[in-house]
């Protein structure tokens, strides 16, 4: 049943993508859109493949990935740590809760100029922005997961002789894992988006910078390449996280 259903679904899913590319090609071929504004898809993908093997372009990807991972890692460490602490300790909760309420809906990009002034135009300000943006979804879903752990799981572990502080690592953390990973997934997508934007606003390298450079010189083909690259990176990273997720959550129902 599923074996037959799956290819149909995949085929169905490919339809809109093929359609988009076809319309794109059609627009160019019919002359409705001048190639200077909308380069043909063949040219864009050709350029992408050509760029992917060049050292300079790989350097740009590496710069973007470095900032992305650094910011994401900080967000995960802080978000999971603070989220669990806030769920476990009422005093920490009383402090963290209102602060999160204020900071979470704050548009973090608006802080970017301040970060530039404080941390300079290098890696620091961009990594901080990525971390600030990815932090809250991770923190909130960790907190949510940790504060809804089934009481009887904790009781079972306590009865088996687990000291209170160990409960946090042996029960609360693993039990909150599905929720934490959902937060990480959102955080990862945000990291992709934010690192790119930060590089677009001010940078001397990275994929965002490649786009801005191409835009300044009206190189339409080169504007598409970094966008497709970040989309591919997002898909790959999301896939990796999905693999990690299904490994870590192999015992959980519906994971």
């Amino acid at each position: 049943m599923t074996a037959r259903l799956l290819p149909t679904n995949v085929a169905l899913g490919l339809v809109p993508i093929v359609l988009v590319i076809a319309v794109w090609q059609g627009l160019v071929s019919s002359g409705l859109a001048p190639a200077a504004l909308l380069p043909p898809p063949g040219a864009v993908f050709g350029r992408l493949l050509q760029q992917l093997v060049t050292w300079t372009f790989q350097q740009e990807i590496a710069a973007t990935l470095f900032r992305l991972f650094a910011g994401f890692a900080i967000a995960v460490a802080l978000g999971v740590g603070v989220g669990i602490a806030a769920a476990a300790n009422p005093a920490i909760n009383a402090i963290v809760r209102p602060i999160v309420r204020v900071l979470a809906p704050l548009p973090k990009v608006a802080l970017y100029p301040a970060l530039l002034l404080l941390l300079g135009f290098g890696h620091g300000s961009k990594i901080t922005l990525v971390a600030a943006d990815a932090l809250f979804p991770i923190l909130l879903s960790t907190y949510y997961g940790a504060s809804t752990v089934e009481q009887k799981l904790i009781w079972s572990a306590m009865a088996a002789g687990t000291p209170r502080y160990e409960i946090l690592f042996k029960v609360v953390l693993p039990a909150a894992m599905p929720s934490i990973l959902t937060g990480c997934r959102i955080g990862l997508v945000i990291s992709c988006i934010v690192v790119f934007l930060a590089e677009m606003i001010t940078s001397t390298d990275g994929l965002g910078h490649v786009l801005v450079t191409a835009a300044r010189t009206f190189q339409a083909v080169d504007m598409f390449v970094p966008l497709i690259t970040i989309s591919l990176l997002g898909l790959i990273l999301n896939g990796l996280l999905g693999t990690l997720r299904s490994y870590l959550l192999r015992g959980f129902p519906e994971a």
Binding site: T8, L12, G13, I17, A215, L227
Partner: peptide
């Protein structure tokens, strides 16, 4: 069917920073 139709396209668009489309849309 509708979900299977749109999901992959949305997955591709998801990690693209929408504001980064500015320069291209500005061209048009």
């Amino acid at each position: 069917a509708v979900a299977a139709f749109f999901n992959p396209l949305l997955m591709i668009i998801y990690p693209v920073p929408k504001a980064a489309l500015m320069p291209i849309i500005m061209l048009w």
